[in-house]
Amino acid sequence: MGVLNVTPDSFSDAARYLDADRAVEHALAMEAAGADLIDVGGESSRPMGASEVPIEVELARVAPVLARLGKRLGVPISIDTRRAEVARVALESGAAIINDITALEHDCEMAPLAARTRCAVVLMHMRGGLANHIEFARYRDVVREVLEYLRARARFAAAAGVARSRIIVDPGLGFAKTAQHNLKLLAALPDLCALGYPVLVGASRKSFVAAIAGAGERELEFGTAAANALAVAAGASIVRVHDAGAAVAVVRMAAAMAGRARPLGCDA
């Protein structure tokens, strides 16, 4: 899953693709590099200092990009949003997946929308809000608590009418998690996969990777590659990445070594 942040303040590529033309070019380049999905987002959720933006602003950022991509992109589009109205516009523009960092909790209209449109949904674990989720990184047993939450949210989605085959879960690395929490969750991916849903892992360029591997561009690239390789080998179906070209080779090799012909595991 290639990341396309159409925002001025994302932690990795702030303002780089705020211009719609550049955003579209980047999405097409990620597709050409081998990305299987493109995830478009118009609201930053970086760990420190992220703030809510008005829905009008979020729509103004993503709508022009989605309108153009829907006609040119050959791979599925995912919309990274907490808001049902943004998701609705994206789905009408051709998106096939709702990637909701609040696991359908923020907007009560999101679950009915997903059920009605029969799109796929990504349910992510997080605590707190955009601006303060790191303050909630306190657990007695992070693996057990994340598993219980995702199991409950998947059951909620299914009860709302979302087909089980279209539910994807995400442990939310970096969201209300310390570096040690992230490492424990990565080590426990087989347990997460045992829930029976495709698992998405988003380790790309996150602060825990920088803290362990180094914050330079090269160190972030190799640190991210290591996390992605281990995630795929452990059973993850999707890795969310900023550098699709580098990730493709990593995913192919890790999947082959783990005896998995192709890691993607949802029918979006």
Rank of each mutant, 00 (worst) to 15 (best):
L104C: 08
L104R: 01
E105K: 13
H106L: 07
D107R: 03
C108E: 12
C108R: 07
A111Q: 00
A114V: 04
A115S: 10
A115Q: 08
R116G: 07
T117Y: 02
T117P: 06
A120H: 04
A120G: 11
A120F: 00
V122T: 04
V122K: 01
V122L: 01
V122W: 04
H125V: 09
M126Y: 10
G128D: 07
G128P: 05
G129F: 10
L130M: 11
L130Y: 11
N132C: 05
I134D: 10
I134S: 12
E135W: 00
F136D: 04
R138P: 05
Y139D: 12
Y139K: 10
Y139E: 09
R140S: 14
D141Q: 13
V142Y: 04
V143I: 13
L147W: 05
L147Q: 07
E148M: 04
E148P: 00
A152M: 10
A152L: 12
A152N: 11
R153S: 01
R155V: 10
R155S: 14
F156Q: 11
A157G: 11
A158V: 12
S165I: 06
S165C: 10
R166L: 12
R166K: 15
R166P: 01
I167A: 06
I167G: 06
V169L: 12
V169M: 09
D170T: 14
D170E: 14
G172W: 08
F175D: 03
F175L: 13
A176Q: 01
A179S: 13
H181Y: 08
H181M: 12
N182Q: 08
L183D: 07
L186G: 07
A188F: 11
A188L: 14
L189N: 09
P190C: 14
A194I: 10
A194S: 13
A194E: 07
A194M: 11
A194Y: 06
L195V: 05
G196E: 12
V199S: 07
L200V: 12
L200T: 01
V201N: 09
G202M: 01
A203G: 11
S204T: 02
R205D: 04
R205N: 03
K206Q: 05
K206E: 02
S207W: 08
V209W: 01
V209F: 05
A210K: 06
A210W: 00
A211L: 13
I212Q: 01
A213T: 02
G214P: 03
A215G: 15
G216P: 04
E217M: 12
E217T: 13
R218G: 12
E219F: 05
E221H: 09
F222T: 13
T224W: 02
A226C: 14
A227H: 00
N228Q: 15
N228C: 15
